[in-house]
Nucleic acid binder design. Structure first.
Lengths: 187, 187
DNA sequence: CCACTTACGCTACCGTCAGTAGCGTAAGTG
DNA sequence: CACTTACGCTACTGACGGTAGCGTAAGTGG
């Protein structure tokens, strides 16, 4: 037990701050090349030049690692557009574009697939990945939580379903059609 | 090698025709009680009063068993309604109701989740489970394949995503909202 | 210069589960 | 009475997520 939690300057053997970024890059690369299931924790560790035990010291499970990796990959959602319609449309296209980046779509579809059989992972996904966007959208659109929830489930459900079933991100024309469809209801 | 494939009347030790139904019931019961991952092939075999090897003699994989089970559970899609709007709406509510039956929703979400990491299962799912409904809808609505594909992916993507993330089928009010939303585009 | 702390590498391991091999047997067939 | 076919049973493999335990490099504070 440390004598004083205030003395956080104790930097003896402190975690390398660049290691997370290295692992995230290796994770997305592995998922891109080998698929979600093919990107085992062993392989990710090798790709990152890191011991597998180190991964488990920083993340409690493969799912948690992927979620953190995705949080890093997605970043903040841009709110471009004058009215609600433009905001919504640009948001949908932003999400679709992110899913199109190498590894991101497969990681997203994979982690949601794992979540079906793992309540703890569902909690992590909902709280850490989805919640921020839910709150931001709620704030931006002024819709009740229930409507935001439906809106997000339609968009992410459709995009992830396509990604999972085809292995490819949805084509632009379909994304546009999806956006148009959503706009008719939520504009 | 049989001397004549015509002499198919050779009924020596032929498969018990009621065994499939028994297995399907045991499968849905197991999935309902234990979840998709908890319903292992061993447990399904025990629940059905059957050897695990027998399951693998009839189905090449767990996914294939679940798909056949779902085909049996869904049956034919009813086309009720005078116009396209009513047909579409009743179809969506029919699907949602089926997903609400014990075990069906969990089995559906589970098998789609497995499919993300299994191209062979994706093929089975697409060809044996989805294709018939795709063709029927195409016939009924007279829309091009591309539009039917989008329509189905939005509906099934949303419903399965909800089921997978909450463990519960989507509430009626949300199903109605989803149907209304889809109708605005595809009526 | 010397304890002490902390993060990391490494090897070996566990439990679970999908899927397989091989052998014995009941039952109907000609 | 041979023959075929489907099924039960036991034992096994291989992959993968996750863990245990021990050694070590590096920076810290006295």
């Amino acid at each position: 037990m440390p004598t004083s939690s205030v003395a956080a300057s104790s930097a003896a053997g402190r975690p390398r701050s660049d290691l997370n970024a290295t692992v995230f890059a290796a994770t997305l690369r592995s998922v891109h090349e080998l698929g979600y299931a093919g990107a085992t924790m062993d392989r990710i560790a090798v790709a990152a030049g890191v011991a597998k035990t180190t991964l488990y010291r920083r993340w409690p499970s493969k799912g948690a690692l992927i979620v953190d990796c995705l949080i890093d990959a997605f970043g903040r959602m841009p709110f471009d557009g004058a009215d609600r319609g433009e905001v919504l449309s640009s948001g949908i296209h932003w999400l679709a574009a992110k899913i199109g980046e190498p590894g991101v779509g497969a990681a997203l579809a994979g982690v949601f697939s794992d979540a079906v059989n793992d309540p703890a992972l569902r909690e992590i996904l909902s709280t850490r990945l989805q919640e921020p966007y839910r709150l931001a959208l709620q704030d931006e659109l002024g819709e009740p939580p229930h409507r935001i929830r439906l809106l997000m489930d339609v968009v992410t459900g459709t995009l992830i379903h396509r990604m999972g079933m085809t292995g490819e991100p949805m084509a632009d024309a379909d994304v546009a059609a999806l956006a148009e469809m959503v706009l008719r209801t939520f504009r």
